[in-house]
């Protein structure tokens, strides 16, 4: 009986956490992707480039640095599934979608702050990704920060 409890209780909690990760995690991810697509559509006319020079035809008076950042965590299901992926190798699709979300979000935040400052374009953008979970090993829960920064071209003094 005691052995049964020792096995069933941890197993049940793992199943509950997996369900939680699956239901809430998936819903939130889908909602976030829908939100990203909507915001990308509204900003699609705004020029963002990683070229270092001012695009032809633009005459900015000054420029300023703009930043966008986000920290994202994976859900329990993804962390769990990645354990299997570690055995067989190959693309970790669950983590690629996580990083993709973070990167698009960071880029959009940078664009939105540039537009709020009245910029005409953002040039020389750079992406930077870093692991901020600070832990390694089996229990490491992936947490990543994505930073996007660039130079916003302004039509007049800010």
């Amino acid at each position: 009986m005691e052995i049964l409890i020792q096995i069933v209780v941890p197993l049940a909690s793992v199943v509950v956490l997996l369900m939680l990760g699956f239901t809430i995690g998936r819903t939130r991810e889908r909602r976030h992707f829908a939100d990203l697509e909507h915001r990308e559509a509204t900003n699609s006319k705004f020029l963002v480039t990683n070229l270092k020079t001012v695009p032809p035809g633009m005459q900015p008076q000054t420029a300023t640095l703009v930043l966008g950042a986000t920290v994202i965590a994976s859900d329990y299901l993804k962390t769990f599934l990645s354990g299997f992926r570690m055995i067989f190798g190959g693309e970790m699709k669950s983590y690629s979608s996580m990083i993709e979300r973070a990167r698009r979000e960071a880029r959009l935040r940078m664009i939105e702050s540039a537009r709020a400052a009245g910029a005409m374009a953002v040039i020389n953008i750079r992406f930077e990704t870093s692991n901020v979970s600070g832990t390694t090993g089996r229990n490491a829960a992936p947490m990543s920060e994505v930073l996007c920064y660039g130079t916003a071209l302004l039509p007049s003094g800010h």
């Binding site: 956490l17 994202i72 859900d75």
Partner: peptide, 27 residues
């Protein structure tokens, strides 16, 4: 709160704010 967020995934708003604030300090 971050360890709770690790169950359901998604953005860790407080960490985002913390790092943004720290980066501003570095700048």
């Amino acid at each position: 709160t971050a360890s709770l967020k690790n169950l359901v995934g998604g953005e860790l708003t407080q960490y985002t704010e913390l790092l943004t604030e720290s980066r501003r300090q570095a700048v």
